[in-house]
Amino acid sequence: MLKIENLNKTFGKKQIFANLDATFGDTGVTLIVGINGVGKTTLLDTILGISKYNSGTVEFNGLSSDQKKFKEQTFYVPSDFFLPEYMTGKEYSNFILKHYPNSNLAFFKKCSEWLGIKDSLNKTLETYSFGMKKKIQLAIMASSGTTLILADEIFNGLDFETTIFVQNLLDKMSQSAKIIIVSHEPSVIDFYSEDIRILNNKKLERMYGTSEAVIEKVKKEGNLNSKLCQMEKYFRTA
């Protein structure tokens, strides 16, 4: 179980989280939504210990992010990633997976086949397109054997067919692992509608409903609602 209690974090004078509390079960997919700049990526970074917080606690199965066992049980797919382009796909995947004691190289090869990058594993990463780089990250993620997976805009750069495949792959993986996704795509919201949290007013709020309901909720936050009202007024008077 991932448990966050009384989390407080600031950047300079700006407060990002204020006494944020959240509990996530051992399995299933949680989707985090919110307007740009509200702190969604920062929350993932904070859970993993990449970004430090001012006060509070973040624990996964009683472990803190600075413990080796925590790192062995968690995997992160960031929205922006920089791969060692001089390595081949095979070298890179072997290098990453050796850090995870429960990783499965045979399953990595199968995922690479499913994702259409098997024939490119002996090529250097500098020859990969953005979509291929995302796919090798996903294949490594799926075969890491970790029980907590965090992913930021995981479907960016994927074609329609691959998006559907990855959605179903994550659904299967979530039967034995906890997966937390940051996304703004309506199709993703509808697919993972069982546990949606909106980051708002420096806290996480549980939401229920369709993508339309979530979008309407997001519209009311920050400056978005004001901008939409101004736009409506402009077109009425133009």
Results as ranks from 00 to 15, higher is better:
22 A>E: 08
54 N>D: 15
15 Q>L: 04
226 S>E: 11
159 D>L: 07
215 I>H: 06
216 E>G: 13
5 E>I: 07
88 T>P: 11
46 T>M: 00
156 N>M: 11
172 K>S: 13
92 Y>M: 10
187 S>P: 00
181 I>S: 00
153 E>L: 03
173 M>D: 03
145 G>N: 06
95 F>D: 02
200 N>K: 11
171 D>Q: 09
227 K>W: 04
220 K>I: 07
137 Q>W: 01
18 A>Y: 14
15 Q>I: 13
70 F>R: 03
150 L>A: 11
202 K>N: 09
154 I>F: 06
214 V>E: 04
19 N>Y: 06
25 G>P: 08
130 F>P: 03
190 D>P: 00
136 I>W: 08
60 F>D: 07
126 E>G: 14
56 G>S: 04
187 S>D: 05
168 N>D: 13
132 M>Q: 13
229 C>M: 14
167 Q>Y: 09
58 V>H: 02
64 S>E: 08
137 Q>K: 07
214 V>A: 12
102 N>H: 15
29 V>L: 10
186 P>I: 03
13 K>V: 12
203 K>P: 01
198 I>P: 13
216 E>M: 15
214 V>S: 07
133 K>C: 12
58 V>I: 14
222 G>H: 07
176 S>D: 11
36 N>H: 06
164 I>T: 10
6 N>E: 12
157 G>H: 10
190 D>L: 02
48 L>G: 15
234 Y>H: 03
192 Y>T: 08
53 Y>P: 00
171 D>G: 00
176 S>I: 07
131 G>Q: 12
51 S>V: 10
190 D>N: 15
193 S>Q: 10
118 K>N: 10
23 T>H: 14
184 H>K: 06
82 F>W: 09
63 L>E: 06
12 G>K: 14
233 K>V: 05
82 F>V: 09
37 G>C: 03
125 L>T: 14
95 F>N: 04
38 V>Y: 00
20 L>R: 09
100 Y>V: 03
97 L>Y: 11
103 S>Q: 10
2 L>W: 11
143 S>R: 04
90 K>H: 11
54 N>A: 02
4 I>S: 10
72 E>Q: 15
110 K>V: 06
235 F>C: 01
222 G>R: 12
27 T>H: 09
169 L>N: 02
118 K>I: 13
115 L>A: 08
26 D>G: 10
186 P>V: 05
37 G>E: 08
138 L>S: 04
18 A>C: 10
50 I>S: 04
200 N>L: 05
206 R>P: 07
198 I>L: 12
232 E>N: 11
154 I>V: 15
33 V>C: 09
173 M>H: 01
76 Y>E: 07
150 L>K: 02
119 D>S: 15
8 N>G: 07
46 T>H: 04
229 C>S: 12
53 Y>D: 02
223 N>D: 11
138 L>F: 05
201 N>G: 01
233 K>Y: 14
218 V>K: 14
97 L>P: 06
93 S>C: 07
78 P>E: 04
156 N>R: 00
9 K>R: 13
143 S>V: 05
39 G>Q: 05
36 N>K: 05
171 D>S: 11
24 F>D: 12
182 V>L: 05
12 G>P: 13
227 K>A: 11
